[in-house]
Design a protein around this nucleic acid. Structure first.
Lengths: 109, 109
DNA sequence: ACGATTAGAACCACAATGTGATAGTAATCA
DNA sequence: TGATTACTATCACATTGTGGTTCTAATCGT
């Protein structure tokens, strides 16, 4: 199964779509975790996910900005989406009868 | 943050309530993961979670059954519940805008 | 032109988590 | 008494996660 952090990475990349690259993904993750995303985890996890074929990455064009270093762009592969979906459904199933999971009611009848 | 497997363990224990013990938790986890729960992970993770104060475990009375070895009973602590809730909410937030997460609609107003 | 500043990537040694195989223990059944 | 059953325990190893630090390529002010 995916690790928790690997899942966060894939989710962030998927959410950002074509704007997904290292630093942006970091911010996205920090949004979900209340500010915790170790910088080391980020790029090593990219490498590992790429080795397993769950994401594809490539260097983008340097943007005309202060500090415009070429960005490492990220795209989640079909295989990666499958894996993320499996993770999500496992967590959901495990949380079905648990007090802390907010299950939104499906409306009256 | 909790690891994914640690979360599954705590969830299973919480779901089982006062009937939570090693082997039953294993079955519960296998239900959520389509049959995968390594036996080694189980007890080592108990030890680790207990060391961190997220669960409390003790040996129960041997039941009068074939193979009635004393069971290792498990109770999730308040601290453990907090931690599990944090994990869940992080995963939920990360999954908010992602295609594979099934967001049940809240019903017709 | 050139150093200061900025956005961003990469590496590394280490810590924490997850795993399979294997063995041990306490009970019942025949 | 020995086979069988339900369950716990351990260990060496593989995989994931982390903080600190360094590197690179651009822009800005002067």
């Amino acid at each position: 199964m995916l690790g928790a952090f690997e899942y966060l990475l894939i989710s962030a990349a998927a959410t950002l779509g074509k704007d997904a690259y290292g630093a942006a993904i970091r911010q996205e993750i920090e949004g979900a975790t209340n500010g915790r995303c170790s910088i080391g985890a980020l790029y090593t996890t990219f490498d590992r996910l790429e080795a397993k074929g769950f994401v594809k990455t490539w260097m983008g064009d340097s943007t005309p900005q202060r500090g415009g270093r070429p960005k490492r762009m990220v795209r989640v592969t079909a295989k990666g989406i499958q894996e993320a979906a499996a993770f999500y459904s496992t967590v959901s199933r495990a949380s079905r009868d648990v007090s802390w999971a907010v299950h939104r009611a499906a409306g009256p009848s």
